[in-house]
């Protein structure tokens, strides 16, 4: 079957989708977006977290056909997600937090930069899902406590970092976003 949806601001169409296929498979294998990771396919690890109509979900548990006509943001698009620093820059806003350019010239979201700066990335497999979950957390709770962070990230497993650096990264991102102004996240 054919599935048409908006991914990272663009209308995309996937053909030959198997009706039992997950949105995760469609994104990675049919739409060329391998940033969203596949680790457990059981909803346990959160490495496949994407925003579906603005809410973080496990892409492995969404049937691709359920995303028909819906809006998806993956880690590849998170920096351009409305309200991000990059979007501010495009609008010519002043006082934006520092942004870093990646090899292909794209811009990182402040949450991604904070993960790098805080040393919250080791093997990096959990990172895309965490970044998406943290962007959502800071949008709803700009200054989360440690326990709020733990609760918000309870569905994102990391085998490497021991989580402490991830908590540091979330606090750092929160500070930087607060410094950058109210609509930076």
């Amino acid at each position: 079957m054919r599935v048409t949806l908006t991914v990272n601001g663009e209308q995309r169409t996937a053909d030959d989708v198997w009706p039992g296929e997950s949105l995760l498979f469609t994104l990675r294998e049919r739409l060329g977006l391998p940033g969203t990771k596949n680790a457990c396919e059981q909803g346990e690890c959160g490495s496949c977290t994407v925003l579906l109509d603005g809410l973080p979900v496990c892409a492995c548990l969404v049937a691709a056909g359920q995303a028909q006509g819906r809006t998806v943001v993956t880690v590849e698009g998170i920096a351009r997600y409305p309200g991000s620093i990059a979007a501010r820059n495009e609008r010519g806003a002043d006082g934006a937090a520092p942004t870093a350019a990646t090899a292909d010239g794209s811009t990182l979201h402040p949450v991604q930069e904070a993960f790098v700066a805080a040393g919250a990335v080791q093997c990096g497999f959990c990172t895309p899902g965490l970044v998406v979950a943290v962007v959502d957390l800071l949008r709803t709770r700009p200054h989360p406590t440690d326990s709020e962070i733990r609760e918000a990230l309870a569905g994102n497993l990391c085998r490497c970092t021991g989580y402490e650096k991830i908590l540091d990264a979330v606090h750092l991102a929160a500070q930087r976003l607060a410094a950058a102004g109210p609509d930076a996240s």
């Binding site: 009706p19 396919e41 496990c58 492995c60 548990l61 056909g65 359920q66």
Partner: peptide, 27 residues
Amino acid sequence: PILGGTDLMVGLNAGHPPPPALLDLTA
């Protein structure tokens, strides 16, 4: 029928025999 898929998709991803049809109720 499928709503959130958080039970159903776990089984499908694990290779359980697929049903003849999924009836998506999320629309």
